[in-house]
Amino acid sequence: TEIRININGVTIHVRDASEELKKLIEHLLRLGADEKEIREVLHRWEK
């Protein structure tokens, strides 16, 4: 699944996002995570 996240005008594009990762990101956004925090989570997730 491919997702695009727009945070304050900055688009983060994620290829091959699992449903689990998608739910995690949606949850973090609801909690008010910023772009830097989302990128950090994505970076750690890929490892």
Rank of each mutant, 00 (worst) to 15 (best):
S18T: 13
I7D: 02
R39G: 04
H13E: 08
T11Y: 09
K22D: 03
I38M: 04
N8F: 06
R30T: 12
E19S: 12
D16C: 13
L31Y: 11
I25Q: 00
H43K: 15
W45V: 02
H43S: 12
E46L: 15
K47T: 15
I25A: 01
H13V: 14
E40C: 05
I3E: 03
E35P: 06
H27Y: 12
R30K: 13
E46Q: 09
T1S: 12
H13S: 10
A33D: 02
S18L: 04
V10N: 07
R44C: 15
V41K: 03
I3W: 15
I3D: 03
K23A: 12
L31E: 11
N8R: 04
L24N: 06
K22W: 13
N8D: 08
I12L: 08
I38V: 06
E26G: 08
A33F: 05
H27I: 13
N6I: 11
V41I: 07
H43R: 13
N6F: 14
I3R: 00
V10Y: 07
I3F: 13
V10S: 07
N6P: 06
K36D: 13
G9S: 04
E2S: 11
R39E: 04
A17D: 04
K36G: 10
W45E: 02
L29R: 03
E46K: 03
T1V: 14
E2H: 11
E2R: 02
E20R: 05
H27N: 14
S18F: 03
D34C: 03
S18H: 05
L28R: 05
I3N: 02
R44L: 13
I12Q: 01
G9Q: 04
L31A: 10
I25V: 08
D34M: 06
I5V: 09
I7R: 01
E20I: 05
L42E: 00
V10I: 11
K23M: 14
H27F: 09
N8L: 06
E2L: 07
E35Q: 07
L24G: 02
V14E: 01
A17T: 08
L28A: 14
K36W: 11
K22Q: 12
E20S: 08
N6G: 04
K22S: 09
L24H: 14
I7M: 10
K22V: 13
I38Q: 00
L24E: 15
L28Y: 12
H43I: 15
E35N: 03
A17W: 08
N6C: 07
E35F: 10
N6K: 10
I3T: 04
L31Q: 11
K22H: 10
L29S: 04
R44D: 15
G9K: 03
L42V: 14
V41C: 09
D34N: 09
R30F: 13
I3C: 03
G9Y: 01
I5Y: 05
D16W: 07
R39Q: 07
V10M: 06
G32K: 04
W45S: 01
V10C: 06
R39V: 08
K36P: 07
I5P: 01
L31G: 11
G9D: 06
I5T: 01
H13C: 09
K23N: 12
G9I: 02
V41D: 00
R39F: 06
T11S: 09
L21N: 00
A33H: 05
N6T: 13
H13R: 06
V41P: 00
